[in-house]
């Protein structure tokens, strides 16, 4: 899994490429926590992410909780299989999918 971050003042875009699973989720979590301070607009670009498990969802939930305190968060370019996971778990209700 590769993570590309683009930070523009208080906006942060995180692009994830590859599988987000139990092994790679902590890496994403670390990447977010490093950069989230002061961010008011957090965007996850999931165009290149074909897969996520509950471990990935946990990271998104944690980020969402944090952003609820300091700004706004959304995910974009979500693929069908990942969207299904979001829907099954009700995450599509708590995370904005644009």
């Amino acid at each position: 899994m590769d993570i590309i971050k683009q930070k523009n003042e208080n906006e942060l875009v995180i692009k994830i490429s590859g599988r987000l699973d139990t092994n790679s989720a902590p890496e994403l979590e670390k990447a977010i926590m490093e950069s989230i301070e002061g961010v008011e607009e957090l965007t996850f670009d999931l165009a290149e992410m074909p897969y996520t498990s509950s471990a990935g969802l946990r990271v998104f939930l944690k980020a969402q909780k944090q952003m609820n305190k300091q700004g706004h968060m959304k995910v974009i370019n979500i693929c069908e299989d990942v969207l299904e996971v979001f829907e099954i778990t009700g995450f599509s209700d708590i995370i904005e999918i644009a």
Binding site: S53, S54, V85, T89, G90, I94
Partner: peptide, 22 residues
Amino acid sequence: DIKLSAEERQIGGLGIYMAKKL
């Protein structure tokens, strides 16, 4: 409970739930 808000959600038990659903 998948209807809870983000603040109320617990991550535990979600994996088995997903396995069942998928």
